[in-house]
Amino acid sequence: MKKTILLLAFFSFISAPLSAKVIWFADPDQSTKVTNFFKRLDDGNYPQDYCKVKGDHEDVEASTVEVLSDEELGKVWKINKPNNRKRGEFARVEGQLDSFSPKEGDDIYLAWQWKIDTVDKAKIDKEVTVFQWKSASPHNQNYPLNLEYDGELTLNAWGPNYVENKGYHNRRTVLWRKAVPQNEWVSIVIRIKVNKEDFGGLVQFWFNGEQQILENLESKEYQVKVSDDKKTVFHRTNDGRFVYPKWGVYNKRSCQYDVNAYFHNMKLGTSLATVMPKL
Rank of each mutant, 00 (worst) to 15 (best):
K2I: 13
L6T: 03
L8A: 14
A9H: 01
S12I: 12
S12Q: 08
I14D: 00
P17G: 08
P17K: 10
P17T: 10
L18F: 13
S19I: 14
A20N: 14
A20S: 14
I23V: 10
W24L: 03
A26Q: 06
D27H: 03
K33D: 06
K33V: 15
V34W: 06
T35I: 11
N36A: 10
N36I: 05
K39L: 14
D43K: 05
Y46F: 14
C51F: 09
C51M: 07
V53C: 01
E58S: 09
D59S: 11
D59V: 08
V60T: 12
E61L: 14
E61S: 13
T64F: 03
V65S: 12
E72K: 15
E72F: 07
G74C: 04
G74H: 05
W77L: 05
N80T: 15
N83R: 14
N84F: 10
F90P: 03
R92Q: 13
V93C: 10
E94C: 04
G95E: 06
L97G: 02
S99F: 03
G105Q: 01
D106H: 13
L110V: 11
A111S: 15
W112I: 00
Q113C: 10
Q113L: 08
K115T: 00
I116Y: 06
K121M: 08
A122F: 00
K126D: 12
V128C: 02
F131R: 03
F131Y: 09
K134R: 03
S135R: 00
Q141H: 05
N142L: 11
N142F: 05
N146F: 15
E152F: 07
L155D: 01
W158D: 08
W158A: 08
Y162P: 00
V163A: 13
E164V: 08
E164N: 13
H169F: 13
R172N: 12
R177N: 13
E184G: 02
W185N: 12
V189M: 05
R191H: 13
K193V: 15
V194I: 15
V194S: 02
N195I: 04
D198M: 12
G200I: 04
V203G: 01
F207S: 07
G209H: 05
I213E: 14
L217V: 02
K220V: 10
R236C: 05
T237C: 08
N238E: 14
F242L: 12
V243R: 00
V243S: 11
G248H: 06
V249Q: 01
V249A: 15
Y250K: 02
K252P: 05
R253M: 12
Y257P: 05
D258C: 06
N260C: 03
A261L: 08
A261R: 00
F263Q: 07
H264M: 07
N265E: 14
N265W: 12
M266D: 01
M266N: 11
S271N: 12
V275P: 09
M276P: 09
P277K: 07
